[in-house]
Design a protein around this nucleic acid. Sequence first.
DNA 1: CGCGCGATTGAGTAATTTCAAATCTAGTGG
DNA 2: CCACTAGATTTGAAATTACTCAATCGCGCG
Lengths: 186, 186
Amino acid sequence: MSHFLKIHIQEIVSLSEDEFETVQALFIKKKFRKRQFLVQENQPVNEIFLIEKGFVKSSIIDSSGKEHILQFASSNWWISDFAGFFKQENSSLAIDCIEEAEVYSISFENMNLLCSQMPKMEHFFRIKSNFGYVALQQRILSLMSKTARERYEDFVKQYPGFTEHIPKQLIASYLGVSRETLSRLY
Amino acid sequence: MSHFLKIHIQEIVSLSEDEFETVQALFIKKKFRKRQFLVQENQPVNEIFLIEKGFVKSSIIDSSGKEHILQFASSNWWISDFAGFFKQENSSLAIDCIEEAEVYSISFENMNLLCSQMPKMEHFFRIKSNFGYVALQQRILSLMSKTARERYEDFVKQYPGFTEHIPKQLIASYLGVSRETLSRLY
DNA sequence: CGCGCGATTGAGTAATTTCAAATCTAGTGG
DNA sequence: CCACTAGATTTGAAATTACTCAATCGCGCG
């Protein structure tokens, strides 16, 4: 039985052993190597992923061929192409592994099953979604109101572990500036 | 009984008459005049609002005194300072009325009550939150990968009704450009 | 009519991008 | 252990984009 998964969920709801068994049975543990895709562009998005170890990113290639990074994820973060997942459409994002990762995945069907059969888990996912929403709102404000340098400093402060595992050019892309600009900031 | 509220909720879950009565009892109908605040900066955020009619915005004033608009809302949109609301902290945003509005509000306590007593409503709010998350994700990508002109064209296409009710300088602020720049795009 | 708000225009400035080249670094195979 | 290579970072210079500040214009409402 997965200690990690249990701890993660119990940050928000408390489950009995039986309940937790039911939950756990709907997750699949997977491992990914560096550069391996968790979700490929233009493919169905069957699952969302909870990262136990490692580093993963979601990104999109724009019309001019530039990569834009939407999210980094490490331990205890959820990641997927949520648009594709929730709407059950093909992915417009690519999710791939920056550093060898171990993850728990849950399918769309199993997530719905879980939510309909266990109100606590619907509650769990609602709370997660709410906080995710708030985090994105912060990021929009940051993109609109702060300079590249301020955004970088905020990033380093907010995610201290990330800078050691993620190349600066990817961080630049996440912050919405070119790698050259980020390099010149210091 | 509120036809509007019922229709809005039934886009996602179906409720019996009794259930709907329970739901409705937890909402309060309110009206706001132009320029009136729904939420003021640095005050507790007691409620979230579902707009029936009118136009409302949420915004923040940055350290240099510039206003940044996070969201517009008209009929069938939810708005509040969700960060303050979910974390039960004081507001860092201001929510105010662009055009005379009629809204339904629900308090934090009543929302939690509703979610814990009626799984259908927890489901409703989870789905809403998910789609809200996806919409913000789109906006981040747009801010990072598109020019001001493209963002404006997308905005007009996506929210055709808004441009007629919302001054261009506010749209500029929403898009993350100065009003002069937006004005020069055409 | 006059005021306030919104929109536009001009000119100079600041920030960031692009393209190109050089440098640095970590990992790999001989 | 060294040489090689791919990826990552840095630096330079020119071009672009958007910003700020300031002035003007237009219009609807009281």
